[in-house]
Amino acid sequence: MKKKLIAIAVGTAMAVPVVAMADVSFYGRAHISVDYLDDGADYSETNLSSNSSRLGFKGNHQINPNLEAFFQIEQQINFTTGNSDGGTDFATRDTFVGLRNSDLGALQVGRFDSPFKVARGPANLFGDQVGDMRNLARAGDGRFDERYDNTIQYTTPTMGGFNAKLAYSMYQGEWAVEDEDSDALSMSLNYAGGPLEASLAYEKVEEDASRGERDGIRAAAAYKLTDAFKLVGFYQTLDYDGNDATTSLDRDLWTSDTYGVGGEYKVAPNTALKAMWMTRDSDADNADADMWVVGVEHKLDKAVRVYANYAVVDNDDNSELVPWKEARTANNVENAMGEKAAGFTVGLRYDF
């Protein structure tokens, strides 16, 4: 019996270095804000919001000098409420596993942001805040900026500052359904080098997806004119065909062109002023909207930052967009038909 116990103990001790070979890290983000929101009509209140806060694990394992396995498990967690929209306390964000070859690129499978979604990154000055560009770029139920299930993605190696991403979502839902065409294709070409960062993306979703058939083109860029000043630009065109349940009005409302420009100026090493203007031109009559955002952000250190923003969406008579809808728990007010909806926010973001 003693010999068996000794053998088990030795075997366990020998297994520890094998586990240690995997480089695994725990990370997260606590992002909260206090917001004063006014839809221009009946709602005018102060809210506390959790803004895409998250917890995750990620790691990699070197198989040989040229081949590496990697994974990530990430969950949304809310710091202000018990759940999100009546759901569970956690919601799956970018979660995947894959292999990376230094010469051939990376292949990953799981649920994660599409290349089309990631492509807004260079111009995304107010991500997960009041004034996020997705309040215009992702408007309507025919939305893009998605995190697709059941996805396979290939990422090329970076050559001369360029890389490309090609993702294919095989089907929507937990399993494939016979005679259902709900797959999605998303791709992007990306560049980062010197003062320029830019992305060009295309995405197409088939007719049996829950929001119907749609496709879009997106371009985003950031250029550092000086060490202190960065200029950004964004353009997107979407065409929404819908499905059998979609009305012609819905198709016109969600078919749109959205574009804008903005800038970031560092007034001190850790303090920046930001501003952006965007407009959404819908195919439907009198359904356009403009958004202005100004803000200031101060980094207390590499992990913690504070900010304050003021954002306004000016709606045409048949538009009801607000500047606080996306990526936030305080997001369920939409009574702004034909109104100016405004939000003022003071936020804290802690990355760990």
Rank of each mutant, 00 (worst) to 15 (best):
D183P: 00
D208A: 05
G194S: 10
S199K: 06
A219H: 06
D227G: 13
A222C: 05
G194T: 09
K204Q: 11
E203F: 07
S210D: 13
Y191G: 09
A184M: 08
A184P: 01
A219Q: 12
Y191H: 09
G212W: 01
L231T: 08
R214G: 06
E213V: 11
A219Y: 12
G194R: 09
K230G: 01
L231F: 15
L200C: 06
V205E: 08
E206R: 10
G216C: 08
E197N: 14
S210G: 09
L196Y: 10
E180L: 11
L231E: 01
A221H: 07
A219G: 13
M187C: 11
P195A: 15
D181P: 04
A184Q: 04
A222D: 03
R214D: 04
S186N: 01
L200F: 15
S182F: 00
R214V: 11
A198D: 08
D208E: 02
Y202N: 02
L231G: 05
R214F: 00
D227Y: 05
E213K: 15
E180S: 12
Y202A: 03
L185V: 03
L225I: 15
S210A: 13
D181R: 11
V232K: 00
A198S: 11
L200Q: 07
A184R: 02
E197D: 12
L189H: 07
E206I: 07
R214N: 03
E206Q: 14
E206D: 14
R214P: 01
D181K: 14
A228E: 14
A209T: 10
A192C: 08
T226C: 03
A222E: 01
Y191K: 06
A184L: 09
R211V: 10
N190L: 06
A201M: 02
D227H: 04
I217C: 05
A219K: 03
R218I: 09
F229H: 12
S186I: 00
V205A: 02
M187R: 07
V205Y: 01
D183C: 03
D215T: 04
I217D: 05
D183R: 08
L200N: 06
A219M: 11
G212I: 00
G216L: 03
P195I: 07
E197K: 14
D183K: 00
A221D: 06
Y191S: 09
S182T: 09
A198P: 07
D227I: 07
S199C: 06
D208Y: 04
V232F: 12
K230C: 01
E203C: 03
E207M: 11
D181I: 10
I217N: 05
D183Y: 07
Y202R: 05
E206P: 04
Y223H: 11
E213A: 12
P195C: 11
G216R: 02
R218G: 05
E207V: 12
G233K: 05
K204M: 10
G233L: 09
D215R: 11
A220I: 04
E207L: 13
L189M: 13
S210T: 13
M187G: 14
S199D: 13
A209I: 03
